[in-house]
């Protein structure tokens, strides 16, 4: 072994450290028999890592990217990727920490809704890959005796994801997803988002008043009457009937039982 070869040269540690540091030259111990530059060759790997991670984030947060523009987003995503590289080989799960990063990212502080839009896009990705389950429709709910309605314990569909926001995140998401030319959105309007994928298509909608509190309470396993009480206590404008329509027909529910008895 050549004397110039430092201990561990060719090892992962030096290689890995330099992949995430654009200021570093190539690690020692690389050889380019064809006569090129080791730095240039190493930059292929480093560039591929950076471009790959940014592309993953761009695919998961397309609305955030459209809101701030490609250049701003890609640079912001590069910083996030360097700071928080994936911890798993399953890339569809990468980016869960991105909304928190965006919330604390000074150059984006003029867009206070951006982090919540990112949370909505995280929710969409989770819903897309969530476990499958047959949703429960109004017919199933209608079979319970009226006296038991308040005691129903509802299991939410595995794809249900809720995002509460003081900003109009669903309207922002919709126009930036569907419209070639975006329409104006009054961003100060609070919108609580429901994301659900009852079969194979994910749907995003705005919950009626108190819906976030109501569904969150149901998700903890409390019976329907108590979930309604909790929502009404937290949100004076809570609209029970509107929220029950959501519960019965949007594919939000996967199971329902009276107390401990299965459906």
């Amino acid at each position: 072994m050549p004397a110039s070869l430092e201990r561990g040269a060719g090892g992962e540690r030096a290689f890995a450290a330099r992949l995430l540091d654009p200021d570093c030259a190539a690690p020692r111990g690389l050889r380019v028999p064809a006569g090129g530059s080791a730095d240039r060759r190493f930059s292929v790997y480093r560039n591929n890592v950076a471009v790959g991670l940014v592309a993953t984030l761009a695919a998961r947060f397309p609305v955030c990217r459209r809101l701030v523009g490609d250049a701003f987003f890609d640079a912001m995503a590069s910083l996030f990727a360097l700071q928080s590289p994936p911890r798993s080989a399953v890339m569809s799960a990468y980016g869960e920490g991105f909304p928190a990063f965006v919330a604390e990212f000074p150059p984006a502080c003029g867009l206070p809704y951006l982090a919540d839009v990112a949370r909505l896009e995280v929710a969409l990705g989770r819903a897309y890959h969530a476990a499958d389950a047959e949703p429960l429709g109004p017919a199933a709910f209608g079979r319970f005796p009226q006296g038991a309605w308040g005691e129903l314990v509802v299991g939410l569909h595995p794809s249900v994801n809720l995002v509460a926001s003081p900003h109009a995140i669903v309207s922002l998401w919709e126009t930036n997803t569907r419209d070639a030319t975006v329409r104006p959105v009054a961003v100060a309007q609070a919108e609580d988002a429901l994301v659900v994928r009852p079969h194979l298509a994910a749907a995003v909608s705005v919950l009626p008043p108190g819906g976030h509190a109501f569904l969150s309470a149901l998700a903890t396993g409390v019976p329907l009457a108590r979930a309604a009480e909790e929502a009404a206590a937290r949100v004076p404008a809570f609209d029970l009937a509107a929220n029950l329509v959501i519960l019965f027909r949007s594919g939000v529910a996967a199971t329902a039982r009276i107390g401990a008895a299965p459906l």
Partner: peptide, 9 residues
Amino acid sequence: PKGTCEATV
């Protein structure tokens, strides 16, 4: 930011 944020918000 130079995306749609100015036009939509």
